[in-house]
Amino acid sequence: MADASVAKPMSSAVGAESIVQIKDLHVGFKVFGGLLKVLNGVNMVVGRGEKIGIVGETGCGKTTTVKSILRILPGEARIFHGEVLFQDKNVYKMHPHELQKLRGQGASMIFQDPTAALNPVFTLGEQISEIISHSGTQPEGKKEAIKILAVKAFREATLPDAERMMETYPFQLSGGMRQRACIAMALATPRDLMIADEPTTNLDVTIQDQVLRLLKNLVDQRGMSLILITHSLGVARETTDRIYIMYAGNMVEVARTAEIFERPLHPYTTGLLSCIPKLTGGGVAEGIPGRIPDYMNPPAGCRFEPRCPKAMERCKKEKPEFVEVGKDHQVACFLYYQVPQNGVQHHG
């Protein structure tokens, strides 16, 4: 991190304290036939109480990034470089009891696919009770107290008939109810950070809004930080304080939510915005020609270079790092290396 242009922790943006810091994270997946070099130096900071959005097209590594925070990457995953700090502690050097505390009280996650995220052969009651009893926030073994909390969590997640939910198996629920059940589990006990991985993509449009609002209310009420992953810039706009734009294993731009929409700088971001009907804020990237690169043999320089309308010779060979281009606004693109701003000097 000797490079002056590499992102400094965004202290100005997030206040004094950060809850999560991801620094130059490289993660690959060992698969048959080689190594998928997916995360390619991810940098990200989440401030206490802040609501962050991560936006990017499918396969760009959003889920991989957030799973690394809870240290729940799948067995094939390898971390080659970088670190993940949760409340200033390196998650991958934590003692088992610290890790336990991180998972029980620090952070929680709502998974992308609620059907896959619920154990099919246990009742919701059994699953949520187990979560509550291991959170470390409840005296263990108090069955009645745990049950009351569980029912309360279901009720807060606006599940109908919360009492009966205790005896219900996931397959007996509709998709929307499963998603609420997942929200209930993630929010059953107090935590500092909520990670929501596309919590609405599997839902009916009419329910999407409800679930999102529910989530936002619960997070606000409790003063939690939020990382919201979404395909939809529209959703991110309504919900978040700051947005990270991700492309093929890199954060390519970050700015306050309003700023991203008013002054998008990275060619990928401008591409994303230009192909979204202004108000509705639909899907991502139908308008940018080309596809996400092959992670087995990714481009050596900027990974967006093959699709970039403004690509230069330099982009083929070198990987751009974040440079600050305004208050709380950083871009990883050589186009902005020539325009020093706020007195930050860049190499080149």
Partner: peptide, 19 residues
């Protein structure tokens, strides 16, 4: 089943690995 999301979820929610 180890690589199923529900195992990742249960791990993330703090249920001890042995359990």
């Amino acid at each position: 089943n180890m690589s199923k999301d529900y195992i990742a979820a249960e791990t993330a929610y703090g249920i001890p690995p042995r359990r």
